[in-house]
Write a protein that binds this DNA or RNA. Structure first.
Length: 419
RNA sequence: GGAGAGAUGGCUGAGCGGUUGAAAGCACCGGUCUUGAAAACCGGCAAAGGGGCAACUCUUUCCUGGGUUCGAAUCCCAGUCUCUCCGCCA
């Protein structure tokens, strides 16, 4: 959510900045609605003052007049709240403004590769996909999942299930012990206001799994990412500056309808309705967002370094960023069967964009109340990491070598094979 | 599911129809004292929105939404949430 004051003072510049995003934004009505809104507020306050004065005087002769004023106030404030509603409706569906160093572009083709890391293994055989490997091992079952649940689900079984769990634990341990994140086991269901706070609502309702409840006004959603629930931990709060930064990590299932992605990655585990993800969230002073984004991204790549998986770091262009982000790095891991890098983490600074929606504030050193900055990043997407490990560590016989750092989490197992 | 209790400023917690935006304490900030710190003492300290270049000023807000009243944190109704007890249950 943008501050109407910032827009008001510099509408043309705002329009220019927002046009960098590859979205259509209706900015034309904003000025008019804002003007109407303020005029109505002024009129209302005038009447309220008048009424208040009468009440203070306690003069019986004026009581009738006070009643009349009340009626006028009623009318004018209903007009005002309608105008305000329309204004908020527009404002709440405008995405965040990209930072200056974000490359301009309309899709992923304009993303900027920042660095490559790790060595891409030269297989002396044709590397198989995780689908084939999982099928041969009889540890990934997509058909069964489609029977029990539908498309885009999977059963991960036996040693691969253990590997998935190991990955999750390894990531959490790293972020807690090495990177100073606070471990959280959060609710997986969020209410409407929480979803609004991080920007999933109102615009992306179709991407969410909503629960069916008797009470239509009580809306609840399965979280599409732990970002939603972790970031909202500070909503409606005024934090003490000495408690910042706050850093949270959680491993949770994520639920996504993936509406609009029909035909994309239909096979395999890349794009599922449900997947595990270890999520990092930071709550910081807004002027620390940029350095925190670097820190967070390093925490994510650290996992890949330790797993010895080749990856690259990409700076997303204006058109490819998420709704709430002002700057985003994607980490992409090498997938041998596809011979390309695939997103495994996305780290974003949201500036005060989400904080404004959540009313998450802090008192700065001058004792002024200000909105916090929020960041989120995957550290990492567990499902996709599982794919990356399976494919990058595959052997010619279809077995999977366990990465060194995961062995302690796998009862020191050396490799996963049919036995 | 049944029975109670509650929701007030960053926090704790008074107020229970009329300058109450709200006592007190804690926390925080400034000052005095001190070699320095602590303690003590003095002072300051809510948020959102509107107007103004500004000093400043106005309005709203004591869970939410209605109602009563000239006037509501205070009374009435509905709802939400939290806590305690009982039942059921992973």
């Amino acid at each position: 959510m943008h501050n109407i004051k910032d827009i008001r003072d510099n509408l043309d510049n705002f329009k220019k900045l927002i046009s960098k995003r590859n979205v259509k934004v209706e900015t034309n009505n904003i000025s008019e609605l804002d003007k109407q809104n303020r005029t109505l507020i002024q009129n209302k306050e005038l009447l309220e003052k008048e009424k208040k004065d009468i009440s203070k005087k306690k003069d019986q002769n004026l009581f009738e007049k006070s009643k009349e004023i009340s009626k006028k106030i009623e009318k004018i404030s209903s007009d005002q709240s309608q105008v305000k509603f329309k204004l908020d409706e527009i404002l709440s569906s405008i995405p965040n403004i990209p930072l200056d160093d974000v490359p301009e572009g309309k899709d992923e083709n304009s993303n900027l590769e920042i660095e490559k890391s790790g060595e891409i293994k030269n297989f002396d055989f044709k590397p198989k996909s995780h689908i084939d490997l999982g099928d041969n091992l009889k540890m990934l079952d997509f058909d069964l999942a489609s029977k029990t649940s539908g498309s885009r689900f999977v059963f991960v079984t036996k040693k691969l299930a253990m590997l998935e769990r190991a990955l999750s634990n390894f990531m959490i341990d790293t972020h807690v012990n090495k990177n100073n994140y606070l471990e959280i086991s959060p609710p997986l269901i969020a209410n409407e206001n929480t979803m609004y706070g991080t920007g999933q609502l109102p615009k992306f309702e179709n991407d969410q799994f909503e629960l069916v409840l008797e009470d239509k006004n009580d809306r609840k959603f399965l979280i599409p990412t732990a970002e939603v629930i972790l970031t909202n931990m500070v909503k409606d709060q005024i934090l003490d500056i000495k408690n910042l930064p706050l850093r949270f990590v959680a491993s949770t299932p994520c639920f996504r309808k993936e509406a609009g992605s029909y035909g994309k990655d239909t096979k395999g585990m890349i794009r599922q309705h449900q997947f595990y993800k270890v999520e990092l969230v930071s709550i910081v002073e807004p002027n620390h967002c940029i350095e925190e984004l670097e820190r967070m991204t390093n925490c994510a790549t650290d996992i890949l370094d330790q797993l010895k998986l080749p990856y690259r770091k990409v700076l997303l262009c204006t058109g490819d960023m998420g709704f709430s982000a002002e700057k985003t790095y994607d980490i992409e891991v090498w997938i041998p069967s596809e011979k390309k890098y695939r997103e495994i983490s996305s780290c974003s600074s949201c500036g005060s964009f989400q904080a404004r929606r959540m009313k998450a504030r802090y008192k700065n050193s001058k004792k002024e109340t200000n909105f916090v900055g929020t960041l989120n990043g995957s550290g990492l997407a567990v499902g996709r990491t599982l794919i990356a490990v399976i494919e990058n560590y595959q052997q010619v016989d279809g077995s999977i070598i366990i990465p060194e750092v995961l062995k302690p989490y796998m009862n020191n197992l050396e490799k996963i094979d049919n036995n």
